[in-house]
Every structure is written in C-alpha cells, then in structure tokens.
Amino acid sequence: MAQRPPPTPMLQAFVSAAQTGSFARAASELNLTASAISHQIAGLEDWWGVQLFERHSRGVKLTAAAQALLPVAEGFFKELDAVLHSLNPGKSQPLYLSCTSSLCSTWLIPRMHGSHAQASFNLDLVLTSADMSSASLSAHQYDVAVVMGYGDYPDHYVEPLMRDAVFPVCSPAFQRLHGDIALADIARYPLIHRVDDQVCPGWESWFAFQGLAAPPYHHGPRFPDSSLAISLAVKGGGIALGRTALVYDALKEGALVALKAPVMMSPAAYYIICRSGRQSEPDIARLIDWLKAQADEFVREV
C-alpha cells in the first residue's frame, strides 16, 4: 500500500528550510516561529522515517535523503501552482526575483525606487536576497536571479549584466583623520575584510594584484557580505574593498571616498539567469529587459 502524503505545512517547512539553510529564516519566510518549523520538520522526519537535516550550532545541513526528496517536494508546489494558474489564468502570480544580498541592498533596491509605477516595470515581484552558486541553484525559489559568477549555469538562460572594478574606500572622516594614504602604506591602517573567495576577491588578492606584500595576518572584522564591510567603512571603521556597483552611490553622495590606487577588475561578473525556455515568457522578458536597461544606464554613468 502506498504511503499517505504528509500534511502540506510539513512539506512547506521542509522546502523553505532547505532553500534558506536555516529554520529561523524559514520561520520568517512562512510567518511562523523557529520552534514551529522545527516541530514540522521533526514531524516530517517521523512521517517519512528518515533524517532530513543535520543540526549544527551555525545552521542546518541537508542529509542525503533530504537532497533526494527536495526536488520532488519542490516539484509538487511548482506543479500545483502551474495547474492552479491554468485553472484561473486571470489571477496573476508574482515573479520571484533573487539577487545577491550585497547587490540587492546597495544597487538594485535604490533603482527600484519609483520604477514600480512605470509601465516598463509594472510587475508583481517578490524580491529575495541569496548568494547562489551553480551548485546551489536547486535549493532556491526564483523565476529570475541576478548571480555573481562566471556564466556557467547549466540548463539556464544566461545574460551578462555587468562587471565590477575593485578598489579601496573609506569615509571622508577617516581620510581627514589620516591624510593622504599612500598605496604602499595601506596595510598599516585598519582594514575591513570581506571573506576572500574566488568570486569576491579580498585584501590578500588585492595586495597580490598591486605587487605588494600583505602582512602575515591582518587583524580586523571579517564579513561574509560585502555590503556589511562597506557599512562599517561608511561609519569610519577603516578601509574596505569596494566594488563599483556596491559603492558608486555612496561615492556620489559623499559617504565614501576612493583611495588613489590602480583598480582591480573583479574576476567574476553579474549575470541574469532563468531556467531555459522561460526567458520568452512576457513578464520574465520584461523583467530581464528592465534589469539590462538599469545596468546599461549605470555603466554609462560610471
């Protein structure tokens, strides 16, 4: 006899927790408490007789069983939405636009201001922020996403959006306090770190690009998100590595100044992606066109 399907709230909790990587974020997404999400997940594990998550102090990790079950659970909700839409085509469904968290807060949202009233952008959007890699795409809900990488997104329609330069920035108050900072002396000052990786170069990469010897270890706050590092620089907390799209508005407004140094081009670029075949859907095509228009205008201004 086939096993009865579990209650829908359990499935929703599972999919949301898997996509966000956190019971707390899933709770916020579903307007529940983290305890309620944990209870639903535990109930689903009992229902199916498998462990779905490994619980750690810093979050949760999907087990092999969860990785096998997640596409099925995600597919259930997507197919349900598709059938409901076909039965009631007059009721529009919002588009899910996902964007890297730093670009979302510093570049995308300011350019959305006022755009929702324009005919070219009058779309029903749910905006989410997530830093997605090629390997983690299946764990996120999106119709269109702006990602940072190298363009290798199998089974996706991919459009280049723009590329950043990388250069040191600080607050005007910090510059007034310390005067002109020579390129060779930057390591002597408080540095604000973005955790270095291949996609987002950090100070180690920048020093190497400049042909300078980096200190063996440089104390300072380390952030997983570039916008957090930039926020501390705006407050006068030290020198951060800025990327063009993330600091341009702050430079224009005088909240930041750029130090004199040769710019380093980011090894990665921003791309617009959606699943193959969906780029021709009218609302998705309009959203892609709007994103490209905003990026083209921004690049011309820069």
Rank of each mutant, 00 (worst) to 15 (best):
R4A: 10
H113R: 09
Y157W: 03
L212N: 04
L259K: 09
V60E: 04
M162H: 06
K260P: 00
P201A: 11
A82Y: 00
A187K: 15
Q93S: 13
I239Q: 09
A42C: 10
Q210N: 11
T100A: 14
E54N: 05
A66D: 03
G237M: 07
V299I: 05
G238R: 02
Y142V: 11
H193W: 12
V126H: 12
L291A: 06
L44W: 07
F207V: 04
S115T: 01
V263L: 11
L137I: 05
I273K: 11
A145W: 11
G149N: 13
S92G: 04
A258I: 07
G21V: 11
K292D: 00
T100L: 11
L291Q: 06
L241W: 06
L127G: 08
W48P: 01
M1C: 01
P154R: 08
G114D: 01
W107D: 08
L123T: 02
I37V: 15
C99E: 10
Y153Q: 12
P6R: 10
A173E: 12
P110T: 03
R163M: 09
I230K: 01
S35M: 14
A213Y: 02
E159R: 13
M148S: 08
L256I: 04
T128K: 15
R222Y: 08
I239N: 07
A233H: 02
Q93T: 04
P160C: 05
S22D: 10
L241K: 08
L259D: 10
E74N: 03
S231G: 12
K61C: 00
M10N: 00
V15N: 02
D249Y: 03
R163C: 05
V158I: 05
Y96F: 15
L127K: 07
A117T: 06
I230Q: 00
A26V: 13
E54W: 01
W290M: 07
A293M: 08
Y271H: 10
Y271N: 04
R188W: 00
S86E: 03
A65T: 00
H85L: 02
Q93W: 01
Q12T: 06
